[in-house]
Design a protein around this nucleic acid. Sequence first.
DNA 1: TGCCGTTGTATTTTTAAAACTATAACGAAA
DNA 2: TTTCGTTATAGTTTTAAAAATACAACGGCA
Lengths: 113, 113
Amino acid sequence: MKAVTRITFFDDNEEKFFGEGPCRLLHAVETTGSLRAAALSMNMAYSKALRILKNAEKALGFPLTERVTGGKNGGGSSLTPEGKEWLKRYEDYRDACVQANRRLYLDFFPEQR
Amino acid sequence: MKAVTRITFFDDNEEKFFGEGPCRLLHAVETTGSLRAAALSMNMAYSKALRILKNAEKALGFPLTERVTGGKNGGGSSLTPEGKEWLKRYEDYRDACVQANRRLYLDFFPEQR
DNA sequence: TGCCGTTGTATTTTTAAAACTATAACGAAA
DNA sequence: TTTCGTTATAGTTTTAAAAATACAACGGCA
C-alpha cells in the first residue's frame, strides 16, 4: 500500500491545464526537437499533444514552445526560455510536495514500514 | 491559477483503491444508512458504488462497511468501526498534505497573490 | 519548381469508462 | 406466506475521452 500525490494546475475557469502529462511532453520536446516526435515517443496522438500545449499556453498567457513550420527539416519545436523556467518551477514545487507528503505519510501511517 | 493536490492510495498491484470518491461515498453511507441511497445522493450508479467498496475492502483486508441484506426495511449499510477509523485517518492525512502543499505554493509561486 | 518533414486543422473511428437495466436473493415483520 | 426495500450480480447501452486518419500549409533547399 502506498499514497501517491498528484499536483494539477487549474485556470480561473476551473479547467486543468498542467500536470504530469504536459510536464513529460515538454521534456520530450526538449530532447526530440519536434512535437510530433515527442508525441510519438510517449505513444500520444499528435493532435492531443498540440491541444495540451495550446491549452497550457493559453492559460499561462505565454508560449511554452516555439513551433516553427516548414524550413530545412520541415520545422520543429523547442522550449522557450519562459517555458523552461515554468517547467523547472513546476517540477521543483511538485517535488517539494511529494517529499513533504511522504514525510507526513510516515507520521500518519507509521505501521506501513 | 491554482494548484490542486490529490491523494490516491494504491495497492501492491499498483491499482488505486482509495481517494476522494470512496471518501465521499463512505460519508454518504454514514448519513443515509444505505449504499443505494448513498450512490443516488451523489449521482453514482449503485453498481459502481458497490465495486468501489469491494475493491477498497479487498485491498485493505478489512470491511469498511457492514452491508445487511433483507430484514425489516430491506436492509442497509453502515460503517464498521475500522471503516470509521480508516476514513478519519485518510482525511487527516489528506488535509495535512493539502495544507502543507498550500504553504509550499506560496513559497514557489509568491506572485500569485 | 519540386521535395521534404514538420506544424496545424478537421473529421472519423476506436476504446474504455460510466451509466443503465433487469433480475435474483435476502430476511424481518405483518 | 406475502410484502418490502435493500444488497448483489450480470448483461446491455450510453457516453466521453482517446486515438487514428486525412489533408492543407509552410518554407528552406537542391
